[in-house]
Design a protein around this nucleic acid. Structure first.
Lengths: 340, 340
DNA sequence: GCATCAAATGCAATCGTTTGCAAACAATTT
DNA sequence: AAATTGTTTGCAAACGATTGCATTTGATGC
């Protein structure tokens, strides 16, 4: 029952006894064409299940209406691809992009070839690129920026960079987290995460600022470096307690997943949360409030962030210059910390 | 510094003093061309940062090498888009598709126009469609199938359908879940989920089979219908306890998110898990083991499932017929249930 | 030296739109 | 009635690759 040879614009035009140019303009709702002609053709197209061949129109117009979204994973530990936060961002971006007439081509840094600008833009697969996460190395990203391709990155907006970065106020976020713990009478506060990573480094700064402001111990012993997965956090906390005992009473975690891993390690040792140890996460993933105790965390506004990213990208598609934008964060107080 | 007018295949050919046909074949590694010529051109292309214009080649070859993945969300409650399970499947699909030379165009049923086959396939945006979730109505999907477009659906593989469905053995999964609870001495086992939904309906059957096999109460009072979100589950359990007290000692939940919502409602009332009430989830999301108590659940093998889906889709792209495939499930025993 | 054959390359049409420009048409003014 | 507008439509040339077929090239045998 499939059409032997598919209907083409020329065919549709013939059916309507107009030229292909008229048909093309009519379907694109070009006001050059008389309104009733437009409607007649649009109705005919619907009736015959016709839709324009995008390959052809992309070739002709040099516009794809596609945005490549690249999950910039740090390692090949495909753990991170399951981080609900990253995937949440993809979901939100999808919504916003569609709303603006763009489609989302999903990729990840492990798969895509090296030269992203080349692969996606000059090959005319996409009009612009959104990279989620700066990873540890930003050379790939800088190469895209240098090529002049429309680009927006989710990451640390404070890093001076040649490209537009949208991201949360990470420094403030962890500052708020640490301050909150301090107000809850914590004295020895752990930082749990990977300070080599741009965003995490900012979070580390905020954590230190709060501690210093309150004359607390900022010894390097209190900064535990670990991957941004719950498993890594679980292992790190478990082994550090085994080694040194419980020498801390608060944890500033760099993500909710990390916080949850730590939580599990503590609970397995019957350490009371929040009384023995208080924990603050980062992200506010959907599950944060379901945990027991529910997780105090720094909320990242992914919906707003997605809107801003798309906005800044569209700016560039229109030839304007885009800017980095800082998204506000918010402390969400729940049960994993003492409410002063 | 961006090239005034981009290099084209013809330009590259001229640089190499060959015809465009030779250049085209060389870049596509066609053995018709002498090996050293091929290598010379490929090197030249790399040197000049050249890549083939996909819009043009798609137009000519009528192949896009793109697969549209549609998240078939039930409602406009964009809650479900954040279900980590769905997004995990997207991530896995992305991996497998890329490995097979395809790209993933992400969409969701709320955004995409009505006629998917038309929108994606005849418009030459994609070569095939993968739908994640059958939703409550399958009319959209059936329309695609009727159009003859290459299609694979993640859903209930037992439903007799005109299209290839890949999915877990849902009936068996919930049977195992219920049986496990029964072996742990549960007598009044709740089913929590939405039996109108195809997959959930299978799970309901499995649940009933186990109960009947053991002569337990299958009264309809024990089947609670609720949306597949943690919030809905939380509300449902909370209000049912308020209404009728604790008349159950086990819960078969239709997803981990649902299980976690229920867990929270119970814990807030200081109901002991697993001793007062045991819970089994479904999916085995990454967080399942992080909870306290860690969640006993039925694991869905999304990695394998993704491979099978892509396999079945490629079959169709090659003109063969695809078949529905049932993916094995596995009971993962943790602490939210008594180990008999 | 010429026919024969295989290997390597080139010619030119084609995929299905879009769009600058010209043409046809209708309405208004002189 | 001709000239002047303004609307609506059509012609035909792109866009940049791929590919069936023809052609060249070089090797081989007689």
């Amino acid at each position: 029952m499939t059409n032997e040879n598919k209907l083409t614009l020329a065919g549709l035009a013939k059916l309507a006894s107009v030229s292909t140019s008229t048909a093309s303009r009519a379907l694109n709702d070009n006001p050059l064409i008389k309104k009733e002609t437009r409607e007649r053709l649009q109705a005919l197209a619907k009736e015959h299940n016709f839709s324009l061949n995008r390959a052809a129109s992309r070739l002709r117009t040099k516009k794809t209406n596609v945005i490549a979204v690249i999950l910039n994973l740090t390692d090949s530990t495909d753990q991170s691809i399951s981080d609900p936060f990253l995937l949440k961002v993809v979901g939100d971006l999808n919504q916003v992009l569609n709303k603006n007439g763009y489609e989302l081509l999903l990729s990840n840094s492990l798969m895509a070839s090296e030269d992203w600008a080349n692969y996606f833009i000059s090959s005319s697969r996409a009009d612009g690129i959104i990279v989620i996460g700066q990873g540890k190395s930003t050379s790939n990203i800088e190469q895209v920026a240098a090529s002049g391709a429309p680009l927006v990155v989710w990451g640390d907006p404070n890093a001076s960079s040649s490209y537009a970065v949208v991201g949360s106020n990470n420094e403030l976020g962890s500052y708020l987290a640490a301050k909150h713990l301090i107000e809850g009478q914590c004295k020895n506060i752990l930082f749990l995460g990977d300070p080599e990573h741009a965003e995490m480094n900012e979070r580390h700064k905020g954590y230190r600022r709060a501690l210093i402001e309150h004359n607390l111990n900022t010894s390097s012993e209190l900064t535990l470096s670990c991957d941004i997965t719950s498993k890594a956090a679980y292992d790190t906390i478990s082994s550090v307690i085994l080694d040194k005992g419980l020498f801390f009473d608060g944890i500033v975690a760099t993500s909710d997943m990390v916080a949850l891993g730590a939580l599990k390690a503590l609970k397995e040792r019957y350490i009371g949360i929040p009384n023995d140890v208080s924990i603050v996460g980062f992200d506010d993933i959907a599950m944060a409030e379901l945990f027991h105790p529910s997780l105090t965390t720094i909320k990242q506004n992914t919906k707003l962030a997605s809107q801003v990213m798309v906005e800044q990208l569209i700016k560039q598609l229109e030839g304007q210059k885009a800017t980095s934008v800082v998204i506000d964060v918010e402390l969400i107080t729940r049960r994993s910390s003492r409410s002063n």
